[in-house]
Design a protein around this nucleic acid. Structure first.
Length: 381
RNA sequence: GCACAGGUGGCCGAGCGGUUAAUGGCAGCAGACUGUAAAUCUGCCGCUCCUUGUGAGCUACGGAGGUUCGAAUCCUCCCCUGUGCA
């Protein structure tokens, strides 16, 4: 069971590749905008395409609650439902096991969630998560995992890791038995989705190793490193990625979930990470934080009130080609919905461009961009 | 002219004898956001000074007096606003 993944060029530990998904040939390394509830917040699908977005995320938990995965299935799957023709990956609900801390109860069998919408109780098991993800029909689906919190002691992390491995096995078993039920099965000549595994193990390299080795034995088409960016120091994130990456098969896509700042995604791509996703560019945009080649811009700031410059003078996105910082500040201060749209367009363009340039530099066999050249994430410390 | 109801910090609006520079909200200023319970959250928000603190001083609840140890809070007069009746 594999997804065609062709490595075209390497640059140090980094690599440029093509991942051949049913809905899209995805050029990697790739950044995947997050579209939790069937929408990358504030950006319509046709503009996502215009930005060059190759693949987006959807979320099992949110779409199960609303509109319901059966509705999505009857609408032809999530691609059809939201009119998104390109690549798609769904998260399993594993992150919600972490983030809905107050609203959930974990047992060996699965997780009991209280809906954040109406308080109703719902049971998620690995089988249930996969069933939902098959109905949604993304190109890639994720095993149901427990995203371990930070900090967590060794014993806690070990138990969590065991649970995730057990759930991965159950996820795979259920997927193998039902993978032909994906809504677009016939349309794509009998192709199916690809189920990716998730490495856990907290901040303990030896537990990461154990998690990775046992997961790799399951022979999945791609592997993710989960449980990061959950509050740990940045340096630790990097260390854990560095320690885990070599344990994952080099001929399959490696995905780090939930990262990062612009300089982080550049750094991780150089380390050999192929796929990343993060809510940061979209959420920060809605909150008025713009990432630019000159650093971060809190566009609400008074200093931009009469600034005639585009958000990023070196950016060629739709927004920077046309609007000033003064106007974007005005929209933000006025809480105009257009503010979220334009800010998000720019931030996504910046992230996507950053990855595109990474790919280009790798393809030419020259050293990839250094983080300092794409220092938008550099925090004012 | 008479009768009610009111006049509080940039705005709205609590407080109605004492830890009140004065609850809240808005506006303003700044910060945070990493597999989205996030168009959210946090801090500051009268002035001045400093050894930046449960710090010091000053100025404040329409105006002027008064009662009281003490008043945004009680009394008197005046000014202004709204509503009703003439």
């Amino acid at each position: 069971m594999s997804v065609p993944f062709h490595i075209l060029a390497t640059a140090g530990a980094g690599r440029r590749a093509v991942m051949d998904l049913p809905h899209r040939q995805v050029q990697t390394p790739v950044f995947m905008p997050v579209g939790t509830a069937g929408s990358v917040k504030a950006v319509p699908q046709h503009l996502l395409e215009a930005l060059g977005t190759q693949i987006i995320l959807g979320n099992t938990y949110h779409l199960y609650l609303r509109p319901g995965h059966e509705v999505v299935r009857r609408m032809g799957g999530l691609h059809r439902f939201m009119s998104w023709p390109r690549g798609m990956l769904t998260d399993s609900g594993g992150f919600q096991v972490f983030s809905l801390n107050e609203l959930r109860k974990v047992s060996a069998d699965g997780v009991e969630f209280r809906s954040h919408l109406d308080g109703s109780t719902h049971q998620f098991t690995p089988e249930r998560s996969i069933e939902i993800q098959i109905a949604l029909g993304a190109d890639i689906l994720m095993v149901f995992d427990e995203c371990t919190e930070y900090p967590a002691d060794r014993g806690r992390v070990r138990r969590s890791l065991e649970l995730t491995l057990e759930w991965a096995a159950r996820s795979k078993r259920y997927f193998e038995a039902h993978k032909h039920e994906v809504p677009w099965h016939k349309e794509f000549g009998g192709r199916t989705q690809s189920l990716f595994g998730i490495v856990q193990g907290g901040m303990y390299p030896e537990l990461r190793r154990e998690s990775a080795e046992r997961l790799v034995e399951m022979d999945l088409p791609g592997y993710a490193i989960g449980g990061l960016s959950v509050g740990e120091p940045r340096e630790l994130t990097r260390e854990i990625i560095a320690a885990t990456l070599p344990l994952l098969p080099a001929d399959k896509p490696r995905y780090v979930m939930g990262v990062g700042y612009p300089d982080e995604i550049v750094e991780y791509a150089k380390m050999g990470v192929d796929m990343m996703d993060c809510v940061l560019p979209t959420r920060a945009a809605r909150h008025g934080l713009l990432f630019t080649s000159e650093g971060r811009l809190n566009i609400k700031n008074k200093q931009f009130a009469e600034d005639q410059e585009p958000p990023d003078p070196y950016c060629r996105c739709l927004v920077c080609a046309r609007y000033t910082r003064a106007y974007l500040r005005h929209l933000m201060v006025s809480a105009e919905p257009l503010s979220a749209v334009l800010n998000t367009l720019h931030n996504l363009a910046f992230y996507l461009d950053t990855m595109a340039r990474m790919r280009e530099s790798m393809g030419r066999g020259i050293p990839p961009l250094s983080p300092t050249m794409v220092n938008a994430g550099a925090r004012a410390e």
